[in-house]
Amino acid sequence: MTDCDFLLVGHGIAGATLADVLRARGHRVLVYDPGQANSASNVAAGLMNPVAGKRFALSWRAEELLPAAAAYYRALEQRYSQSFFTETPIFKIFGSPEEQNAVLARSADRPWGDFVASLTTTDPNLPGVHAPFGGAWLQHGGHVAVRELLAALAAEGHRAGWLRRESFDWTQVQFDSEGATYAGQVRSRHVICCEGAAAVRNPYFGWLPLTPNQGEVLDVECADLSPAQVLNRGAYVVPVGGGRFRVGATYRWPPFAPGITAVGREELAARLTVITDLPFAVVGQRAGVRPAVRDRRPLIGPHPTVPNLSFCGGYGSKGVMLAPRLATLLADWLVGEAEIWPEASVQRYNALQPAGVG
């Protein structure tokens, strides 16, 4: 019988960061993950953007989440002697005089002003960038090499034996007041579901308002496009080195076709032509399914009726920014040292649980 303190199901960005935080605190952790190359975390460009959307909306809790994420990823870089996090300016391109005026009206207010380094109402003449109405230079953001980061953590898990590349069978779990037993082989004090979009089929958490949302990204070569910043106008354009950029992302609600699509490729290519008139070549395309939540807030915390069972996920397209801080929050809660933020708690949806489920 294998004994552990916490059994986690899923090793995407949510599960990986939580497992890492728990292990760093001395807890015995066991993780099950089948290792899907097209998981949402492996496909993501890893953008950390403090301000997004046409309404110039400040990302939820950005002033707390961004510094925590940056510190965590830099610590991992030191640990593995690899580069994962690139802090870089984000240039949000204005698409019209009306958008220009709307952003100017909001940008001086706090906390927006903390993330706006400068504004320009004229073309900044960035190589290859079409920005006749100027744009906003955002600071304290950047991008994370999520695939490489998860691979480094997984390699450590394989070596140490705490990561098992296996599918998890929820029908083989038996819960009791002291913890849970899995398949008669593993005993754990607590089980945590970190399955991402797959949680919509989970027998204990399928009632949560998770909606799978498919996103596609392109990898393109565009040798003369400015690589000094992330570009954002209807799509993000993230420099990945060597004249290559990652362009994303589409949003497809069910029903959607599995895998990459010609429609997704055409949509993203069209968005890129709004940003640049330079020639580019598509050299790769990937698709993943995000775990989106109705109110665009994450879901962490305990199951309402099953003891020693919790959930961690629903991060949508903000996973790299949310995961480190929420991992420490949930780790603190698991040992009675913190309260889950109400706006992120599973408990806000407890009324949705059908009678007799879980």
Rank of each mutant, 00 (worst) to 15 (best):
I192D: 01
C193L: 00
C194D: 01
C194H: 12
G196N: 06
G196Y: 07
G196R: 11
G196K: 09
G196L: 09
A197W: 15
A198R: 14
A198F: 11
A198C: 09
A199Y: 08
A199F: 08
V200H: 09
R201T: 13
R201P: 00
P203A: 11
P203D: 08
P203E: 07
Y204K: 06
F205N: 10
G206T: 01
W207Y: 13
L208F: 07
P209R: 09
P209I: 06
L210H: 05
T211K: 13
T211Q: 14
P212G: 08
N213Q: 15
Q214P: 01
Q214T: 02
G215I: 09
E216Y: 01
E216P: 05
E216F: 02
E216H: 04
E216M: 04
E216G: 02
V217G: 09
V217D: 01
V217L: 15
L218T: 01
D219T: 14
D219M: 05
D219L: 12
V220W: 08
V220Q: 04
V220N: 05
V220Y: 04
V220S: 01
E221H: 12
C222K: 11
A223T: 13
D224R: 15
L225C: 06
L225F: 07
L225Q: 07
L225T: 06
P227M: 07
P227L: 05
P227S: 13
P227D: 15
Q229A: 15
Q229E: 06
Q229G: 00
Q229S: 13
V230K: 01
L231Y: 01
L231V: 02
L231Q: 02
N232S: 11
N232T: 00
N232Y: 07
N232E: 02
R233H: 12
R233Q: 13
R233F: 02
G234S: 00
A235D: 00
A235L: 05
A235W: 00
A235K: 03
A235Q: 04
Y236M: 03
V237E: 01
V238A: 04
V238N: 07
V238E: 03
V238D: 04
V238C: 03
V238I: 15
P239R: 11
P239L: 11
V240N: 09
V240E: 09
V240Q: 10
V240K: 12
G241E: 02
G242A: 11
G242V: 09
G242R: 12
G243H: 09
G243A: 10
G243P: 10
R244W: 03
R246M: 05
R246D: 05
R246Y: 03
V247L: 13
V247D: 11
V247C: 12
V247W: 12
G248N: 06
G248C: 03
G248L: 01
G248F: 02
A249C: 13
A249W: 07
A249P: 09
A249L: 12
T250F: 03
T250L: 05
Y251H: 14
Y251E: 10
R252H: 14
R252Y: 14
W253H: 14
W253G: 03
W253Q: 14
P254M: 13
P254V: 12
P254R: 13
P255K: 13
P255Q: 08
F256T: 07
F256R: 10
F256P: 05
F256M: 07
F256E: 04
F256N: 06
A257M: 11
A257S: 13
A257P: 01
P258F: 01
G259Q: 12
G259R: 08
